[in-house]
């Protein structure tokens, strides 16, 4: 086993992996990572590639900002007022239980 690993079968595999890990992200990949980014769920190297791309790309920065605005819009949806008929029903149920 030790001898095997000393002579790699794919001589440039490590180098290739290095470039694959550090290759810049395309915008098309960025848009699928935005939620993981906002959730802080990206591993450190991917996060760093994400932020490098973001810093130099207006399109992706705009996209991320739009997603943040979307989350804000969703958060501003307020709960409807509690239907007084339903509240009454709950109060009656409570009165019946506590006698």
């Amino acid at each position: 086993m030790a001898a095997d690993s000393a002579v790699p079968r794919r001589p440039f595999a490590r180098l290739r992996n290095y470039f694959a890990r550090n290759r810049p992200l395309a915008c098309q990949e960025m848009v699928e990572l935005v939620t993981a980014y906002l959730e802080d769920a990206l591993d450190a190297p991917t996060r760093s590639r994400f932020e490098t791309h973001l810093a130099g790309c207006d399109g992706c920065a705009t996209y991320l900002e739009g997603l943040r605005t979307t989350v804000t819009a969703l958060g501003s949806i307020t709960d409807e007022h509690l239907d007084p008929v339903f509240l009454d029903r709950l109060m009656v149920a409570f009165a019946e239980m506590t006698g």
Binding site: A26, Q28, G59
Partner: peptide, 17 residues
């Protein structure tokens, strides 16, 4: 430019609550 924006998103205007 494979994978780069061709039709980039429009910026959302300020929309305070």
């Amino acid at each position: 430019r494979a994978g780069a924006w061709k039709d980039p998103p429009v910026a959302f205007p300020d929309s305070p609550e």
